[in-house]
């Protein structure tokens, strides 16, 4: 089909020519059948760049039906792959990275000046010549949101069963082992050995799982801003599930759980820092549970204590503070219960907060997702397609 003359890199225009009848094979190879591991050693989001370079060529030859057909086939194939892998974090992350990269490419090379400010002059030469794909950008943006929601769903389903035992029940501070409120001393140890009982996870297991999610998203070249939003959403879930359990379980409302919880939340903040995720607003989502931990630990006796609690616990509603104080269980016979008059003191303080009416947090609350425009520094004409992808029917132009 093609005279195989080795051309110098500079001769390439960053386009890929294909025959219309090869479109189905192209989409099958690059979308339907691809495994993330096939392209793991190459440029992140390679499928997105290859597809865009094919779109560029169809635009260059002024073939509107070829552009429309490839984009539609790609979008439908991505949707199918996601449906088939709707419990697979790796595949979902891979397609979120590639779909959002394809969307960024359609913007970066649209010819719209707003998207060209960071382009090199070579990249500007590579802008689409004939077609305005703004409507397809909208479809890809909608698709990216759908994929993001699937990613959150898969990740939440994985961590959900770990949260309570990792955050509230496992003993990550060795010196606190065995320090439990009266009557509950052996609860979690007996639970671990119960046949058929719930599985027990440590905080380290939960952090390890978060680390795996993070590593996968990084490997796929997902934009750091999107990765940050995923982490923030998962931290919200961890916070809400933990707080809701505190609000319902007497056995965890104790000084030692407060200590444990403070330690656990600090470990999670540490994980954010170690992974450059502290700016993602994820840490702020832990505020209610951090304050609940402090509430379990502070003195709860005098009017001054009540005042201090109210100015400390700004992320908790009065209803939540009162509930935790009511459930608070002394560690031993020397520690006193919280008195009724102290709780009344808290309840009767002038309300300066706008409290939500419900006691429990919405574990399913989702923050609106944003895909900020992230142009790429890659020069399309330098892109190398590995032979292992079996795309030799594409012709570099």
């Amino acid at each position: 089909r093609q005279v195989t003359v080795q051309r110098k890199e500079k001769d390439f225009e960053g386009m890929l020519e294909y025959h219309k009848e090869d479109e189905a094979l192209l989409v099958k190879t690059l979308v339907t059948d691809i495994r993330p591991s096939t392209v793991s050693a190459t440029v992140p989001c390679l499928p997105a760049y290859i597809l865009f370079m094919c779109i560029r060529h169809a635009d260059y030859i002024n073939d509107d039906s070829k552009v429309e057909s490839l984009l539609t086939a790609t979008i439908n194939a991505v949707k199918k792959v996601l449906k088939k892998n709707n419990e697979d974090f790796e595949m979902t992350s891979f397609w979120l990275a590639n779909t959002s990269r394809l969307l960024h490419c359609l913007k970066q090379y649209s010819g719209d000046e707003a998207f060209m400010t960071q382009n090199t002059s070579k990249q500007n030469e590579h802008c689409l010549k004939n077609f305005d794909l703004a409507e397809y950008r909208q479809v890809l943006s909608d698709l990216s949101i759908q994929i993001y929601q699937q990613l959150i769903k898969v990740a939440e389903a994985t961590i959900q069963p770990m949260i309570v035992s990792a955050m509230l029940e496992s003993e990550s501070i060795p010196s606190l082992a065995g320090v439990k409120p009266m009557g509950y001393r052996h609860r979690s140890s007996s639970m671990d050995t119960d046949a058929g009982g719930p599985a027990s996870y440590t905080l380290q297991a939960l952090i390890r799982q978060l680390g795996q999610f993070h590593a996968v998203m990084q490997e796929h070249g997902l934009d750091p801003e999107i990765t940050g939003q995923v982490v923030r959403q998962l931290f919200h879930c961890i916070n809400a599930v933990t707080l809701n359990n505190l609000l319902l379980r007497k056995d965890v409302c104790s000084w030692s759980t407060g200590m444990q919880l403070r330690y656990n939340t600090s470990q999670m903040e540490e994980w954010l820092r170690a992974n450059n995720l502290y700016q993602s607003k994820a840490a702020a989502t832990l505020e209610p549970v951090i304050q609940a931990a402090q509430l379990l630990q502070v003195k709860k006796k005098t009017t001054q204590d009540a005042e201090a609690i109210c100015s400390l616990c700004t992320a908790l509603s009065t209803q939540q503070i009162v509930k935790i104080l009511n459930l608070y269980t002394p560690l031993n016979e020397f520690e006193e219960r919280v008195t009724v008059s102290f709780i009344r003191n808290i309840q009767n303080r002038p309300q300066q907060r706008s409290d939500p009416p419900q006691l429990l947090m919405d574990t399913k609350h989702t923050f609106p997702v944003l895909f900020p425009y992230t142009p790429s520094a890659l020069s399309l004409e330098t892109l190398h397609i590995p032979a292992s992808l079996c795309l030799d029917f594409l012709n570099r132009v």
């Binding site: 552009v67 077609f131 305005d132 909208q138």
Partner: peptide
Amino acid sequence: RPPSRPRILLKAPTLAEMEEMNISEEEESP
């Protein structure tokens, strides 16, 4: 800088419309 000549807007169906078209195509071809 490339000459800025107007590009032709390609109309795209919405994501939901694309899915509908895709489903009916699949139904047609057994």
